[in-house]
């Protein structure tokens, strides 16, 4: 009987869930601007002056309502980075690649994104986004950020 019991070690359950989330107008504009205009949009708080990217309808520093949207970047500065040596399911880029925190010019907050595993990617490196041909209205419409001097080197 102990043997039979051993077959009941764990219960496995599989679940497939589909989500549909309203963006709210401001995030919706950010995503649409990536898709339709290849632009990065931030929100500026007219009370405390901070510029957030991605934008929000509220200021998370001083709680004011935000109504001013601004184009930021598209170039940005790398604030930090780490290496992703191995790929995984739905990996945002082919491994190896780097995750970067990039602060678009004119914004006060960094975005999390990816870059090639390029030794030139360091803290302080100026990078620019490479947009995909097919864009869907998602942060991944930017394929990745590359060093801004890439064209000159090539």
């Amino acid at each position: 009987m102990d043997k039979a019991r051993d077959q009941f070690i764990c219960l496995e359950q599989n679940m497939k869930l589909k989500f549909r989330r309203p963006t709210g107008g401001v995030v919706g504009l950010f995503l649409a601007a990536l898709r339709d205009e290849k632009k990065i949009i931030g929100s500026e708080c007219r009370n405390c002056g901070k510029v957030f990217v991605p934008p929000a309808s509220y200021c998370e520093r001083c709680s004011s309502d935000i109504s001013a949207l601004r184009e930021v970047g598209p170039r940005g500065i790398v604030i930090s980075w780490t290496l992703a040596p191995k790929g995984f399911d739905n990996s945002p880029a082919d491994a190896p690649f780097r995750y970067i925190m990039v602060r678009p010019m004119g914004a006060d907050t960094p975005l999390l994104h990816v870059s090639p595993d390029d030794e030139r990617i360091r803290i302080g490196t100026v990078v620019r986004p490479v947009f995909r041909e097919e864009r869907t209205g998602s942060i991944t419409d930017i394929k990745w950020f590359v060093p801004d001097d890439e064209d000159k080197r090539a």
Binding site: K18, R20, P22, T23, G28, R35, E37, R70, E71
Partner: peptide, 26 residues
């Protein structure tokens, strides 16, 4: 600051959709 006013009008993306497949073990 490299800030320029947004001049264009784009139609906002209203929903974000996602799918999640989960496997649980109790």
């Amino acid at each position: 600051r490299h800030i320029t006013e947004i001049s264009s009008k784009v139609e906002p993306v209203t929903f974000v959709e996602d799918e999640l497949e989960l496997s649980f073990r109790y």
